[in-house]
Amino acid sequence: MNRQYFSFIGVSTLLLVAIYISINTGSIKVSPLELFTGLILGAEGDIEVIKDLRLPRIIISLFAGAALSVSGVLFQAVMRNPLADPSIIGVTSGAGFMSILLVTIFPTLFFYMPLFAFLGGALAFLLVYMFSWKTGLDPLRMILVGVAINAVFSGLSQSFNYRGSYAVTSVSQATTSTLEMKKWSDVEVMVTYGSVGLIIAMFLFAFCNYLAMEDKTAKSLGVRVNQARFIISAVAVLLASVATAIAGMIAFIGLIVPHIGRILVGTDHKKLIPFAALAGAFLMLAADTLGRTMIAPNEIPASILMAVIGGPFLIILIRKSGQLYGN
């Protein structure tokens, strides 16, 4: 209990520190009091620059990291597989592809981009389920099929690079995680859809705990297993899709954070889901802040940093997967 308590305190503290550092990283630096009074009273100058350029980027990073991490927790609960991640099983690439289609064909429907991304993510997840089913769902088969689905949608997205400059701009926004020049309209979309998904996810902890059991055991307790899987999967797809539509394709964050969360706060999803949201927000903001300062004035996308971190982590996790989830 003490470790869980201190884990929440620790990650919350790190998150607040990361927000403060991100706000003051760059040529403009302000104190918390100056920032607060400036935002309330509408001060001009440096505060306006921070408000229009840095704050939207910070807020999107926080919500995207939280959404992808919680999505990873939910997918791992549904599949009973610690290797499940929205990027590995093709959900983010499917969502990114549909986002590209929307922006290219209907550029005025930007606010509805997450809905189209949700359809793309849901399609990818449905394909994974369909092609993985063979007298039951095998966790390893689902991961392998997911990798193939991810490759297909990623290839389709990259094909837009050869369809003109406007499409190239759309592809860059939807397939990379460079968060520069994000606007408050992006924040509105991210916060609106992301908040809905995160709030619903918080109330699904009991279903996630039941799905950790064998299906027969869960059914004997009165749980409608298939219905629970459908609801949890839908929320997970929504979270991954909205993050992809606004922040771009970011791999491994939905894999790393849930695993760390299980080590620090345990497997009870009542604690794991909120911890994953906090830790994911911190990790994403830290990666984005580091990426924009390492080689300033140029930037390294957060997706690249997460790939560098997540690749070795995935290898370690695969090697130890036989000790997880009782496999």
Score class of each variant (00 low, 15 high):
2 N>H: 12
8 F>S: 01
14 L>Q: 00
15 L>D: 00
17 V>L: 15
18 A>L: 02
20 Y>V: 13
25 T>E: 09
27 S>L: 15
30 V>Y: 08
35 L>R: 05
35 L>S: 07
43 A>Q: 10
47 I>F: 05
48 E>N: 13
54 R>V: 06
63 F>I: 12
63 F>D: 02
66 A>V: 06
68 L>Q: 10
68 L>C: 01
71 S>W: 07
73 V>Y: 03
83 L>H: 07
91 V>L: 13
93 S>M: 10
104 T>Y: 10
110 F>M: 14
110 F>S: 05
111 F>C: 03
111 F>P: 08
112 Y>I: 08
115 L>H: 03
117 A>E: 04
117 A>W: 09
119 L>R: 00
120 G>Y: 07
126 L>E: 03
128 V>K: 04
132 S>M: 03
136 G>M: 11
138 D>Y: 10
138 D>E: 14
142 M>T: 14
143 I>W: 12
149 I>V: 15
150 N>G: 09
152 V>S: 03
167 A>Q: 13
176 T>E: 06
180 E>T: 06
181 M>L: 05
182 K>P: 02
185 S>V: 13
187 V>D: 05
192 T>D: 01
201 A>I: 08
204 L>T: 10
205 F>R: 01
213 M>Q: 10
216 K>L: 10
220 S>F: 05
220 S>Y: 11
225 V>G: 11
226 N>S: 14
228 A>E: 13
238 L>Q: 14
241 S>L: 06
251 A>H: 07
257 V>E: 02
258 P>W: 08
280 G>C: 07
282 F>L: 14
283 L>V: 11
283 L>Q: 05
283 L>N: 12
284 M>G: 04
285 L>Y: 04
286 A>M: 11
290 L>P: 12
290 L>I: 15
291 G>M: 13
297 P>L: 05
308 V>C: 04
311 G>N: 05
313 F>P: 00
314 L>S: 04
315 I>A: 08
320 K>Q: 14
320 K>H: 13
323 Q>E: 15
324 L>M: 15
